[in-house]
Each structure stands twice: as structure tokens, then as C-alpha cells.
């Protein structure tokens, strides 16, 4: 602490040095903004009207129980093996029917896109669910910036292929890269985000660092992780699970309790993190986002377009 000058009157700032009260203020602001987070927030994100008021799963649940076959098929494999993934530098190729195609650095992809915290329900096709406080921005913001041409009807996504850092990619069961796609109106929907973090932290590797898709009304496998390519295309693009088992995994993959997976029921789901005797809850149509998205599928037979 600096010594006081003898001939200067005492001020309140002498009681608490500026450096200290500044940090204290930051700390209070951070704590108030994300009171529920386990760690101090590094990413500032605005709250969203699209967030559910359901209680989010813990950071440990969300980062310790993942389907990310690039790192193995076990739920704990991504947490165990994704640590070595290099996510900086990172760039995304944006191509196809766009006005400004190119290879965009991650910072450029995120430029001017307002970050929001979106607390979304996540429903896996395996009939379990979680609630995740994502941080991200609307995909529509990025697509509008690069300029979608009139012929574009679908958006195709690809995950990174880097077997030396993604040990699961040595398995031949899946034809890499992992591929996903959305119809253009689904991609432009305000619920559809590119997420770059969760719980105020940068996206953990096992959750799809540094940038992933989140489409909350569809089964989790549609929300492709660690994206390196976004293509605007005219035709419905091939998607990984549909390529593997077309009778079981459709292109749309909307959460729908009335359309069962051919091998198991989708009527209910186990809530991961609810403990040994948490039981099940009924699965909601479009995972509870029916009011927002049902109109996208007006006139479609969802038992055919599953």
C-alpha cells in the first residue's frame, strides 16, 4: 500500500485502494450476472427470452456425459480424450450458394454477432435429456452476413477431421467427416444458434469446441460439433446418422413422442442428473418448442419426415 502524502486531506479512496474496489466491483457484477454458475464468468452474454426456466444440469453433468464419437463411443470418452484437440487457430469454410464465400477465422465468424445465454432443453435420440445453458448467437445472423443466394434451400455442416487428435476417427463404423444439415427455414429460425460456450465458459472440447450448432427442438445428433464447414446448397445434404441407418434416423429428426425410433420408444425420457430414483418424464412435442417451430412443418406428415 502506498504511503499517504502528509499534506493531503484524507479521501475515501485512501480507505480502499482503487485497484481493489475495481476488482471487487467486477467480481460483484460477474457474480450477479451469472449467479448460478460454478466458475466466474469470462464470457458476457445477454439473457434470452428463449431460455427455459428449467433447472440447468451441473457443469460436471454437461461436460462428463457426451456423445462425440470422434473421441469414442462411450459417454465418458469425450471428456477423457478431447483434451488434446487444438481449437486455436480455427477457421470455417463457408461456401456454396453464398455471396461472400471464403475461409473465415473464428473471430471473424463471431464478429458483431450478439452473444446470448440460451438455456435450452437437450433431448438425445437415446431417450435421455439434460438442460444446458449455452452461450452463442443466432445462425441467421451469420448467414445474413455472408449473403444467402436465392437458390439455397439447405445448409450443410461438417465437423473437423483430424484423426491424430480425434482417436475415435480411426474407427471405420462412421464415414468421416460427421455431417449434418438443416432446411434453410430451420437454419434461419431464431432458436437455432451457433454456440461458443456454456455456463459462461468457452466451449469445452468434449462439447464441440470451439463452435457448434444447437437446434433445441431436434434430437441431439443434429447439433453438430466442432464445425469447420458450412455450405449453402440447393439439395437436401447427406447426414451422418441418416447415412448409417436411414430407417432409424431421418433428416428432420424432430423430437416427437408419437414417432418412435424403430427399436425403442420416444414417449418418455430419463433426466440425466436426477439421481438413482429420478425416473422418467414425458417427452414433449418438438422438445417443448412446439409453439415456436410447429409452423415450419405445416402440411408435412411427420411420420414420413421423421
Amino acid at each position: 500500500m502506498p504511503r499517504l502524502e502528509q499534506n493531503r486531506p484524507l479521501a475515501w479512496s485512501d480507505v480502499t485502494p482503487k485497484a481493489l474496489w475495481l476488482t471487487r466491483r467486477q467480481w460483484i457484477t460477474g457474480a450477479a450476472a451469472l449467479a448460478a454458475t460454478p466458475a466466474l464468468s469470462q464470457i458476457q452474454a445477454a439473457p434470452s427470452r428463449f431460455s427455459t426456466d428449467a433447472e440447468p444440469n451441473s457443469f460436471e453433468d454437461i461436460t462428463g456425459y457426451n456423445n462425440f464419437y470422434e473421441f469414442g463411443t462411450g459417454k465418458e470418452d469425450p471428456a477423457a480424450y478431447a483434451g488434446g484437440l487444438t481449437t486455436d487457430p480455427w477457421s470455417i469454410v463457408i461456401d456454396g450458394l453464398v455471396d461472400k464465400p471464403g475461409t473465415y477465422d473464428l473471430a471473424d465468424v463471431m464478429k458483431d454477432q450478439p452473444l446470448e445465454e440460451r438455456i435450452y432443453r437437450l433431448r438425445c435420440v437415446e431417450a435421455w435429456s439434460m438442460v444446458v445453458p449455452w452461450i452463442g448467437f443466432e445462425l441467421a445472423g451469420l448467414l445474413n452476413r455472408v449473403g444467402v443466394q436465392s437458390g439455397a434451400k439447405f445448409v450443410a455442416f461438417e465437423t473437423l477431421v483430424r484423426p491424430e487428435e480425434m482417436p475415435g476417427q480411426s474407427s471405420p463404423f462412421i464415414e468421416w467427416p460427421y455431417r449434418e444439415g438443416l432446411r434453410l427455414d430451420e437454419a434461419m429460425h431464431p432458436l437455432t444458434i451457433l454456440a461458443t460456450g456454456l455456463y459462461g465458459e468457452p466451449m469445452p472440447n468434449q462439447n464441440g469446441a470451439p463452435i457448434r450448432l444447437v437446434v433445441p427442438w431436434k434430437y441431439g445428433f443434429k447439433s453438430i460439433k466442432s464445425i469447420v464447414r458450412i455450405s449453402l446448397v440447393a439439395e437436401m445434404p447427406p447426414t451422418t446418422w441418416n447415412m448409417l441407418q436411414p430407417s432409424e434416423y431421418g433428416f428432420y429428426a424432430n423430437v416427437n413422442p408419437t414417432v418412435d425410433h424403430p427399436r425403442w420408444s420416444q414417449a418418455s425420457e430419463r433426466v440425466v442428473g436426477s439421481g438413482l430414483f429420478g425416473g422418467r418424464q414425458d417427452t414433449l412435442m418438438f422438445n417443448g418448442y412446439e409453439a415456436e417451430v410447429a409452423s415450419l412443418y405445416a402440411g408435412q406428415d411427420l411420420t414420413v419426415d421423421y
Binding site: 460436471e60 453433468d61 465418458e76
Partner: peptide, 15 residues
């Protein structure tokens, strides 16, 4: 493991 809550995130599936 179940009693001491050491079966990971999804103990039901593990059991």
C-alpha cells in the same frame, strides 16, 4: 458405487 455416488453422471445406465 451407487451409495457413494461414484457411478458417474448417469448411474442408472451404469447399473
Amino acid at each position: 458405487g451407487a451409495v457413494t455416488d461414484n457411478l458417474g453422471v448417469d448411474p442408472v445406465k451404469v447399473i
